[in-house]
């Protein structure tokens, strides 16, 4: 549980950490879209290099990224295997009994593998370099144009920040309950299926009860301080767009532009 890397903020001091959260969220969206342009291996090479550059700039260790990829490995392999066997285009390169593997399938499988790894790397860089609260703040700013059509921007941002706020608390709680039940002889990793289900029940029920209790306490605490979601509010923390943000954004646009050009020719 302590080794969870996905979505975890790492308090380091780097160029990427200091960038505006709006820029980081926007860039991630643009890069996520450009991952899906069919720009060939050259395109993925460029994007890959760019992501590695971001990784170095953000001072994250490669091992930390590997930790983020690890839990997704099963899904990646699952998708890769499906693609390998079910895409039937191009020339057959390998045939055994009813299994036929086509060269297009191999290429597509490699693409999917590369795409997923790139997506995980990019999202990990975002969450590892941006404090959850800054993320929500950035999101709220980016969503603010939708306020005009009645979209509850502030409420959504509040919900996200509360949800993010409670992830570590709930993880801690989970660990605490797991330890308490382990003291009562539960072994979460061993035993038959029935025992495993029972051990999960012994974890989930207390977890739900305390989560509901916390939700109620928080709602009461907010209401007793007269929280009104519709109130106009100002912020202590203001976001300032810096030159470095514009510079970074230009780089992202350049990379995306290159990828689009490559996919068109």
């Amino acid at each position: 549980m302590n080794n969870m890397m996905i979505g975890r903020y790492l308090p380091l001091d780097s160029f990427i950490h200091k960038l505006d959260p709006r820029l980081k969220i926007g860039s991630l969206l643009i890069l996520l879209v450009s991952v899906f342009f069919d720009a060939g291996f050259l395109g993925y090479g460029i994007l890959g290099l760019f992501v590695i550059l971001l990784l170095i700039l953000s001072k994250l260790k490669f091992s930390q990224i590997l930790k983020a990829i690890k839990p997704m490995l099963f899904m990646i392999l699952f998708l890769a295997v499906f693609n390998l066997f079910f895409i039937q285009r191009g020339n057959i390169v390998f045939q055994f009994w009813i299994i036929k593997i086509y060269d297009q399938a191999i290429i597509q499988t490699l693409y999917i593998f590369i795409r997923l790894v790139l997506i995980i790397m990019m999202t990990t860089i975002l969450t590892a370099t941006t404090k959850p609260l800054d993320l929500t703040l950035g999101l709220e700013h980016l969503l603010s144009p939708f306020k005009k059509i009645g979209f509850p921007t502030h409420e959504v941002a509040m919900m996200i920040s509360i949800a993010l706020r409670f992830i570590p608390t709930l993880l801690e709680e989970t660990q605490r309950i797991m330890k308490a039940q382990a003291s009562r002889g539960v072994e979460f990793s061993e035993g038959s299926l029935k025992e495993k289900i029972l051990s999960i029940v012994s974890l989930i029920i207390p977890l739900f009860i305390s989560a509901f209790q916390r939700a109620e306490d928080l709602a009461n605490a907010m209401e007793s301080r007269n929280y009104n979601p519709e109130a106009e509010r100002t912020r202590y923390k203001q976001l300032h767009w810096q030159v470095s943000d514009s510079l970074a954004f230009t780089c992202v646009l350049l990379v995306t532009g290159t990828l689009i050009t490559l996919s068109l020719i």
Partner: peptide, 29 residues
């Protein structure tokens, strides 16, 4: 398991570990 049976650990606010439908079931867990 053997060690955990020999050394019973009661955490702070242990009431959070209750989960069964009846008190008897929880105690015999």
């Amino acid at each position: 398991k053997g060690l955990r049976k020999k050394a019973g650990l009661v955490f702070q606010f242990p009431e959070y570990q209750l989960f069964e439908e009846t008190i008897l079931k929880d105690v015999i867990f």
